[in-house]
C-alpha cells in the first residue's frame, strides 16, 4: 500500500491550509463555471477574468477534501497570467501526469502520453502521488475540468 506521504505532500497540505486565489468575482466581467463531484459532494466554482486570450485573474471558491482544494489552489497559481494556449498545454501535461483521466462529466477518457519536463509542471508535480490512489484522481482533476468548462461555456 502506498504511504500517506505519497498523497499528502507538504506543498499540498500548505495549499490546503492556505488556499491561494480564494474567493469570487462579479459576473460579468468574470466568467464562471461550477463543478461538483456527485460521488463525494465536493463542489467548487471557478471565476476567470480574461484579457484577450490571457487569464488575467482567477478566483476559486467551494468546499472539498484536501486533494481537491489544494489542486484548485495549485491550479490557480499555475494558470494565472498565462495565455489560453499555455493553459491548454498545462492541462494536457497535468492530465497526462494523472494518467487515468476523466472528462468534464467525470467519465474516464484516454489521454495521449505527451513529453513534458517536470520544470513545466512546477509545483503541480506535488500532486503526482495522487495517481497511486485511484479513487482520489477525481478530486485532483475537479478544478481543471471546471476551468475547462468555464472556457467552453464562454466559447459557446
Amino acid at each position: 500500500m502506498p504511504g500517506l506521504e505519497d498523497l499528502y505532500r507538504e506543498i499540498i497540505l500548505d495549499h490546503y491550509r492556505n488556499p491561494r486565489n480564494e474567493g469570487t468575482f462579479p459576473t460579468p466581467p468574470a466568467i464562471k463555471a461550477e463543478g461538483h463531484n456527485p460521488l463525494c459532494g465536493d463542489e467548487l466554482t471557478v471565476f476567470l477574468i480574461l484579457d484577450g486570450d490571457v487569464i488575467k485573474d482567477i478566483h476559486i471558491t467551494g468546499q472539498g477534501c484536501s486533494i481537491s482544494r489544494s489542486s484548485a489552489s495549485l491550479m490557480s497559481v499555475a494558470v494565472k497570467g498565462k495565455s489560453l494556449k499555455e493553459v491548454d498545454h498545462l492541462l494536457k501535461i497535468f492530465k497526462s501526469m494523472m494518467s487515468i483521466s476523466t472528462n468534464a462529466s467525470g467519465e474516464p477518457e484516454a489521454v495521449e502520453p505527451i513529453e513534458y519536463s517536470e520544470r513545466e509542471l512546477g509545483e503541480l508535480i506535488a500532486l503526482q502521488g495522487v495517481v497511486k490512489f485511484p479513487v482520489r484522481i477525481k478530486c485532483a482533476t475537479l478544478s481543471w475540468n471546471t476551468l475547462v468548462q468555464a472556457l467552453e461555456d464562454r466559447a459557446s
Binding site: 504511504g3 484536501s66 478530486c139
Partner: peptide, 13 residues
C-alpha cells in the same frame, strides 16, 4: 475541519 475523504483515507492506512 478535516474533510471526511481525508479522514477515511488516513483511517484506511
Amino acid at each position: 475541519d478535516i474533510h471526511p475523504h481525508d479522514i477515511s483515507q488516513i483511517l484506511d492506512q
